[in-house]
């Protein structure tokens, strides 16, 4: 039997979609291990979010409602979550491997002498043992791992699961935890926040993404992609090569390091399809590739392919879609 505790990120009482994914994964893991599913909610609004977590599948919810946790602060969050892991007597802690998860998971595991796994996309039970599945070697392969320690901290790759669905009729206990948090532990401070200059939709939330890579040949090519994205109501992304070249800011990056996305439509322009990029679009529904090299690996992941110089296609495509969509909506 293994009890599962899910750290569900909340803001003002609302659960993030990463949190709902973690709830879906965590409760199915608990069911397979004949254990209990609990969630931990921290910061102002934790009480409201606890009710939500139960509606989304947790059997009980722990809350730590301290004003010190209103903003994400790594040292305080570490203290709060590791205390909750301890007090809940769970053996598995599940978190999304998102921006915060990247700070927290290795450190939480070290504190609890637990095993850690990140980028987990699935699990299966073989002869009573849970095998966690995660991509390795830039998504070229999948690895199945088992845990050697009594406890484990599992980081779920965002966008790898259907978020849990809501059922208001679910009930469960809400247990406030008394934890002594002290500002004295704070060593890292946020000095400055620079919001991305991206206009429109966030990459992670976009239903349509037009991305450019090294094949664009320079920053100018992104103007054409922007025009196309505007017509489609989508966002502009980029490969690591285009970001490293300084053509667009790193915040545009789609891939294993940048944004992991799951849009309905992903248009890859001048992107060869390095596996680290493909790992960021594993769950994209329809992928369109436009590349002059018919041998580019991106075509192995694409549903629709156009082998051509992008400059001969994109402006014409923007124009054609503008016309057609105008007809549709008018």
């Amino acid at each position: 039997m293994a009890n599962v505790l899910i750290y569900a990120n909340q803001q003002g009482g609302n659960l993030s979609s990463n949190a709902r994914e973690a709830l879906a994964f965590g409760s199915s893991l608990a069911r397979s291990a004949n254990g209990e599913t609990a969630a931990v909610l921290i910061g102002p609004g934790a009480g409201t979010a606890a009710k939500e977590a139960i509606a989304f599948g947790a059997e009980k919810a722990y809350t730590i409602d301290s004003p010190l946790l209103a903003q994400y602060q790594v040292e305080l969050y570490l203290d709060a979550i590791s205390e909750a892991f301890e007090k809940s007597q769970s053996t598995i802690l599940v978190l999304p491997f998102d921006r915060k998860g990247k700070d927290l998971i290795g450190r939480l595991a070290t504190r609890s002498s637990a095993s850690a796994l990140t980028e987990v996309i699935d699990f299966k039970v073989e002869e009573g043992t849970v095998h966690y599945v995660r991509p390795i070697y830039g998504d070229k392969a999948y690895g199945e791992y088992t845990i050697n320690r009594k406890k484990a901290v599992i980081g779920i790759r965002p966008k790898s699961h259907e978020p849990a669905s809501r059922d208001e009729n679910r009930t469960g206990d809400i247990i406030p935890l008394k934890i002594d948090l002290s500002e004295e532990v704070i060593v890292s401070t946020l000095a400055e926040k620079i919001e991305s200059a991206l206009s429109g939709v966030r990459l992670e939330d976009a239903r349509i993404i037009v991305s450019g890579g090294r094949g664009l040949g320079g920053p100018e090519g992104f103007d054409e992609l922007e025009a196309l994205a505007n017509v489609l109501g989508g966002a502009v992304g980029a490969s690591r090569a285009a970001c490293d070249a300084g053509w667009v800011p790193t915040s545009f990056q789609v891939g294993q390091t940048g944004a992991v996305v799951a849009p309905d439509l992903y248009i890859a322009v001048g992107i060869s399809g390095a596996s680290q990029h493909l790992s960021g679009i594993t769950n994209a529904k329809t992928v369109v590739a436009i590349n002059h090299d018919s041998e580019a690996p991106i075509f192995k992941r694409a549903n629709l392919g156009v082998v051509a110089d992008y400059m001969s296609v994109i402006p014409a495509l923007t124009k054609a879609l503008k016309k057609r969509m105008g007809v549709n909506t008018g």
Binding site: A116, I147, R149, R301, N303
Partner: peptide
């Protein structure tokens, strides 16, 4: 001591049939 054990590694078949225009 390793905290996790890699039991199995495989190359997933993810190839999509691409329709070329």
């Amino acid at each position: 001591q390793p905290a996790v054990a890699l039991r199995k590694v495989y190359v997933p078949d993810r190839e999509v049939a691409c329709e070329f225009l």
